[in-house]
Amino acid sequence: MSRPELQAPPEIYYGDTEAKKYTKNTRNQQIQADMTYRALELLNLPPDEPAFLLDIGCGSGLSGEILDEEGYLWAGVDIAPSMLEVALEREVEGDLFLQDIGQGFGFRPGSFDGAISISVLQWLLNAETSHPTSSPPHRLNRFFTTLHSALRNPSRAVFQFYPSSDDQIQLITSIAQKAGFGGGVVVDYPNSNKARKVFLCLYVGGGGGQQQQIPQGLDGDVVEDGKVRFEKRRARDLRKDKNGKRKSQKVIDRDWILRKKELYRKRGKESVPRDSKFTGRKRKPVF
């Protein structure tokens, strides 16, 4: 199984069963909680003011519950109706919206004191249709520009996400910068394959006397206190061979070869060999 975001669009992947499964899983709850606390830490809100936050991709309200506990008021948006339904059942305090973040927000300028988003941005990196407004750069651009205006000056937005390559980080940060954000990427536990977490820390404003500094990522050895540090379904991606490449799939059988050839022909690739009775046959050992 590959990454969730490659299997189906979020509103379909997180259908009724997956939404319940995801929310009930104590492992997920623990990870989500850890990451939410870390995101709040990076958000660095003034301690004595009750802030109004935006939870982007709030899902079933796992992170929202923590915001409730910490005494923040919040509004959450998510695209998966089933997840929001679970959030309603769990009676979180925030206001929920069914919204596609790639379509942009309609919030008035300066509405929020900060924004957090746990495990969401990677979902914006796949195009679902060929319409120009559904290309990832367009959606990211729309998302970041409308988010930038919805945030108060100065404030921060912290996104935890699972990039599958450095190019993706590059794409996201460059679009965020064009939208007017400052800041950058913070990587926690960069030397651990499993516990490694990528946070995008974005700033609105913050110029003038007090320049905002990108916080340091957590480093050193992962504290072994019996807690889970990674999502299992993500860890599957990490199976690599000793050269650091992902293990390639072996040629399986004749059907597989025929299917591949058919695919290449459909794509218009030239010089695809003809199919014959010899296709996919083993050579004799005497050859």
Binding site: P81, L96, F97, D100, Q103, G106, T133
Partner: peptide, 9 residues
């Protein structure tokens, strides 16, 4: 209690 903010293409 949940507003649907989705837009058409």
């Amino acid at each position: 209690g949940i507003p649907n903010m989705l837009l058409a293409e």
